[in-house]
């Protein structure tokens, strides 16, 4: 009934345990610094985004979407994803300034992703997706849908233009 384990195996298992502890350590280190995936668990009535009466109010109605500053001066990007586009279709943001994006789907499952950045969210009907990040390189980037959402999926993308801070106007 003895459990036979080779000396080499023991050493190897210690190494593997070290690897796992290191991986956990790196994850915890960044989590403690505030690097969390988007996880706000906030519900909204996706079918009534345009109405003040639905769950979640009219935050995502036509007159309220776009780029704004809140009372504390933080940049807030409010957007709607719907087959097959993002609304507003074009936004402008200042280089290197943190902004909070809040976005909801109007119909089916979507995603939003800006290539070559960490702006990457799933958009699940019934929920508000939120993340805070910044974009550092000047120029035009597609904001594209990265979750299959129907036959027009590949053509679902908008544009974000990153401008120098001094050229940015609201």
């Amino acid at each position: 009934m003895a459990f036979h384990i080779d000396k080499l195996e023991k050493r190897w298992i210690f190494m593997v345990a070290g690897f796992v502890l290191m991986a956990w350590g790196i994850q915890i280190y960044y989590a403690v610094q505030g690097w969390h995936p988007p996880s706000n668990v906030e519900v909204i009535d996706s079918a009534q985004l345009h109405l003040a009466t639905g769950v979640g109010g009219d935050e995502f109605s036509e007159q309220n979407i776009g780029v704004k500053r809140d009372a504390d001066g933080q940049l807030i990007v409010t957007m709607v994803a719907a087959r097959y586009g993002f609304y507003p279709q074009e936004i402008e943001l200042p280089q290197g300034e943190a902004f909070k994006i809040r976005i909801a789907s109007f119909d089916v499952l979507h995603g939003i992703y800006v290539p070559l950045t960490n702006l990457n969210l799933m958009l699940v009907p019934g929920y508000v997706s939120e993340a805070t990040t910044m974009l550092n390189n000047l120029g035009d980037y597609p904001m594209l849908c990265h979750e299959f959402c129907g036959m027009g999926h590949a053509y679902m993308f908008g544009n974000v233009k990153i401008v120098p801070q001094d050229e940015f106007k609201l």
Binding site: P37, Y113, N118, H146, E147
Partner: peptide, 11 residues
């Protein structure tokens, strides 16, 4: 990875 996943999710 808890945070690096954002770089490659659904790519």
């Amino acid at each position: 990875s808890y945070s690096m996943n954002a770089l490659i999710h659904n790519t």
